[in-house]
């Protein structure tokens, strides 16, 4: 197998990991926080009790692990692929989060919210397609806008 082909395969594989792991992390955090119940941050003894309850929930740790997986995949793929090529994956993430919330947590999602989410995905995609480097370098090496 040629090097460009291997690079393509690992790029698609890691983008696939990002599209699943990021939204899944958010959904697991949502599930864990709902399981943890009412949150109290004052007085300090109550805050400690809340923290112990939150971090004693399995879904929270799975969510954090999932978000760390997303972060790792993101950093790795950005070491060889362009930001503008990878970034659309994060735009898809908003839609995938809503889909997972709908199917895994049975959240009600109105048609207007689906439309809003679709427009957000489009907006984030457009932001990602804009030039990532907005500063020009002058002949002296100083940056100017």
């Amino acid at each position: 197998m040629t090097i460009p082909k291997i690079r393509h395969i690992k790029t698609y594989l890691l983008i696939g990991v990002m599209v699943i792991a990021g939204p899944l992390g958010n959904v697991l955090l949502g599930k864990g926080m709902k399981q943890a119940g009412r949150l109290a941050v004052w007085p300090p003894a109550e805050a400690l009790h809340t923290a112990l309850r939150v971090f004693g929930t399995g879904s929270i740790w799975l969510g954090v692990a999932s978000l760390l997986t997303f972060l790792l995949a993101n950093v790795l793929v950005l070491s060889w692929a362009d930001y503008s090529y990878v970034q659309p994956a994060s735009s898809v993430g908003y839609g995938v989060s809503a889909l997972l919330g709908y199917f895994m947590l049975s959240e009600p999602v109105s048609p207007l919210r689906w439309l809003g989410i679709a427009i957000i995905c489009l907006g984030v995609l457009v932001v990602g397609q804009s030039n990532p480097r907005s500063l020009e370098r002058s002949p002296t090496g100083m940056e100017r806008s």
């Binding site: 999602v109 207007l112 809003g116 907006g123 995609l125 990602g128 397609q129 500063l135 806008s145």
Partner: peptide, 27 residues
């Protein structure tokens, strides 16, 4: 950061704002 933001990026920012408004209205 004193960066220059392109028109295309502003267009994306506008779409995101519109989408978030609809999400709020849909809630």
């Amino acid at each position: 950061l004193r960066e220059r933001v392109s028109r295309r990026r502003w267009a994306g920012v506008f779409l995101v704002s519109l989408g978030v408004t609809l999400v709020f209205l849909g809630n």
